[in-house]
Design a protein around this nucleic acid. Sequence first.
RNA 1: GCGGGAGUGGCGGAAUGGUAUACGCAUCAGUCUUAAAAACUGAGGAGGCAACUCAUACGGGUUCGACUCCCGUCUCCCGCACCA
Length: 958
Amino acid sequence: MIGSCIIAWRGRVMPDKYTPQEIEPKWQARWEADGLYRSRIDYSRPKHYALTMLPYPSGDLHIGHWYAMAPSDARARYMRMRGYNVLFPMGFDAFGLPAENAAIKNRTHPKTWTYANIERMRKQLRSMGAIFDWEREAISSDPEYYRWTQWFFLKFYENGLAYRQRAAVDFCPSCNTTLAREQVWGEDRHCERCGTPVIKKELEQWFFRITNYAEELLQHPEKWPEKVKVMQTNWIGRSEGAYVTFHTEQGDPLLIFTTRPDTLWGATFMVLAPEHPLVQKVTTDEQRAAVEAYIAQAARQSEIDRTATDKEKTGVFTGGYAINPVNQERIPIWIADYVLMTYGSGAIMAVPAHDERDFAFARKFGLPVRVVIQPLDSALDGETMTEAFVGDGVMVNSAHFDGTPTANREAINRVIEWLEAQGIGKRAVTYRLRDWLISRQRYWGAPIPMIYCPSCGIVPVPEDQLPVLLPDDVEFMPTGESPLKYHAGFLNTTCPKCGGKAQRETDTMDTFMCSSWYQLRYLSPHYDKAPFDPEEAAYWLPVDQYTGGIEHATMHLMYTRFFTKAMRDCGIYKDAVARRDPKLPPIDHEPMLALYNQGMILGEPMDGSYIVAFGTWHDETLHVRKIVVIDEETAKVMQQAENTANDLISSLNDVARALGEPVEDSRMTTAVGEIVKRNDNVIVIERFDETQVTLEVAEGAAIVDKAGNAVPIESLRYRLGVEKMSKSKGNVVAPDQLVAQYGADTVRAYLMFAFRWESGGPWDSQGIQGVVRWLNDVWSVVLDSPPVQGEPDEKAIRALRRKVHQTIQRVGEGLETFSFNTAVAALMELKNTLMSLRKTPVCGSAAWHEAIRTMLLLMAPFTPHIAEELWERIGEPYSIHNQSFPVYDPEVAKVEEITLVVSVNGKLRARIQAPAGLSESEAVALALASPDVQKHINGGEIKKVIYVAERGMLNLVI
RNA sequence: GCGGGAGUGGCGGAAUGGUAUACGCAUCAGUCUUAAAAACUGAGGAGGCAACUCAUACGGGUUCGACUCCCGUCUCCCGCACCA
């Protein structure tokens, strides 16, 4: 046993070394056995529900998981020590595509794959030493979980929040499924999961009416990051304006939406989306061919890469005309793909003088531009203007509205009132937000609990028949097509209404549905009367602090807010609300009161391999027969040798030339440098002068290391910058390995210390040494600081206590504000102070012991194992994690001696040690006594004195 | 184009309008060692022998005093992108 390995050292007994590999599993087992972190309802204590976004069980715990969870755990632990009853649960978002893709690839069932991964990750998560309450673990692919996911679908259906509709939807050809609008990202409209550009498909799919909540979703909880609020607000895209009814010449009403009703008199043409239902009717025979061609091309274009084309406007005249209801003017109707069928009414009035898009269109097709808003400082002319005028001015050419100012929406409001009075238009608000498409054509998800009956139509599965179980005996097709479609046992059923033969819906639900309510399932993961136990919900909800990545801003974080509001309207919170003190914040408005987004850990930049290549030149490429992998130093030396050799050859050639001898063609046959790029057998190296050389490695070329052993070409590393971690780049950091090497406490602390949590950044494998040293020092300063003989002086004692209390304050503030890095820095400083006092009489005093005790308490949230171990070793009762967080005493923390900082005319001139609490005149007297200050005052008259007593800052103005 | 965020040593990063560069990494020097590593001690923004001067992306401003507040410019990152 290493613990007994105590050696004599300078006549004293030296304690054993810090071995996290031993103490960490020991304490984890003890905490587990004691149920130390079980969280139970306790109305005598305030509750704190801390939550971190649940992981997908992809296989192994990633350093990113640690980065997200360890600091959250530290904060949850801090809240616990502050006296809160803390719930910090963990679970798995276990449905989803990777499991199914793995099934296809490895011929393992998604269920087998998923649950094996969960088993492994659970173990890895436990090694973190977090306060997760595993009794509350929830796994979204368990039937006892997805039964309720399906139940929510039924409730939403009953309440008119779920509907089935045929629509042109986004489809990922690689994932072989439809996607919600939120899950299509970027300019090239790619799939959020796999990056493949999506295509449009006309399909019948299930949607949730998230748009019903557009307005409410704009009201964000206060303690959410501004960034997320802004992203969601943009995503929802509210615009105010009016619907106005135009008519076609044939008399059909033609509804448009505009945010600028004050420009109605400037409409010189109309534009319909190519898919608009009136297009066929207004198109004249002469124009029909052109219109058909354009529609066909637009449809094709939306399937190809729409954004690859520049923003040049395209469109076609239909031949038809519309009547503007405000002035009875007859204006042409065009179609163009810049008008989207999915926004507003799929038709616009075009006011080229005051809208950039309409302006571009009008100029391209020679349509008239009529100014109806004149700016106050200049006069616009529709013929000559070069861009649309969108600023404020006064209305002109607009009948009795002429002269109305547009500022402060006055013109808009007055025109809308008039439109409403005339019955031609109506004030309206539109949103960019679309309903949430939740159908997925894949197997590994919760089946949508719906039945299609030839005689009764769409029939919901009765509640008592839930869950609709996923069949286990399925064949996976290499195409990714859902096997549910071909599984007779699943597919064929009887209609719950008429008892006749019917078929099940074979689509499953978007996995974002599972994660929209998991914070509720954690409360009672095995409760079977409802999705959650109302007793638990009444106490624990809502989540007090949520943490996770920003990438979910417009997906998960919108969906779960929608879910909460929809659940409220379906009455699902009723029982819980009834049990709750109405004076407490509501539990059914917002799921998470506060949110914090941590950043991401990126890959560590790496040098490429240094090599020397031998070969012959063919044009600009060196054809290589042999490569030797060398180190950087050797490479430098070799490059110099190579340069010297080249110089020598060149000099010899000069001599040859001078003598009139024939010059040998000097072909370089070696190249030395760092690999910066590698693509199969083509390698680019960079020499030390930063010139690059392209090498082509011949078939069968020898690649050897310095010792002459053959190495595969794949082992040649290329230079890597700061990039996202990925297996293919070889820059992934494995937390398991780090924990084995350094211990969980060190990994936890390093992740908290090395980055600003909100920013993240590239991994630095060297930096962890700082934390290793810190914990070793702590170990030694706690266990190996024998009392020094002698009376400690009062001043030194006060100084130590002051440092301790300043540290309490800094660590507490750091944890409050997610500034984990500064909190750890403060703890390191306290350690440094203690180390420097080790050989002074302070060591061993009561203040010393108090300092040690306090330091361990402050460390407990960050490094729970070493804190517990040392706590025990200094004879304190188990467990440190049941202690209160130290309270900082401002009186003790107050400085008694200051450095009086004296500036003359704002420039720092002297630092003078002085007692705290100097009066202004004392401070000035002290300053004037200083030769440094005297020199700068130089006999001048002091015009003004600024003295900041609490900072010890004096500024003399002369 | 619109919106949001950020620019501080070689690097990660600290700084309620009041001592810029805490804490740590790396570096350099010294101690120990046959040697190296580890560990320990110390140095360190730049320029200058020094007194000092100049430094928080750049240019202005407010102030006794600005990394911090205001105005303008540049660069980088992120989100949205024909949304009428």
